[in-house]
Amino acid sequence: MKKTHVIILVLIAAAIVVLISYTGDLTTYETVASARQKEGKFVNLIAKLDHTQPLEYDPVKNPNYLSFVAVDTLGNAIKVVYHSNKPTDMEKSERLVLKGKVQGDHFECKDILLKCPSKYKDDPKAMQNNQPVVSN
């Protein structure tokens, strides 16, 4: 066997090992109920903002504390605490991907990914419901 072949095999093996070890770091997408079951484990929670509940954010008191209630598609709700500034347009977001873990009664959020209507501009379904307001 040629040296090159040996090196190719070693490197490919290394790449495979890297990818296998990566699967250990992967997390999962969860609902509120399944995230509660995995309390303390880092998960990605897909939910949206519950507009009927108050959103607590006061930059004067603390610009790094945001608290709100998230509700998933099954209708389960959970209080979310996020220790950073409130993402812009969060109220307008149709869907939130919350990265963090359940701690006791609430969800400790480390990062929030917004799915805003702005990014869904081309979405035909969203557009249908987005008729301009006309004053005549």
Binding site: D25, L26, T28, Y29, E30, K110
Partner: peptide, 8 residues
């Protein structure tokens, strides 16, 4: 049909 998400 898995539900794998990016790592922490």
């Amino acid at each position: 049909g898995t539900k794998i998400a990016p790592p922490e």
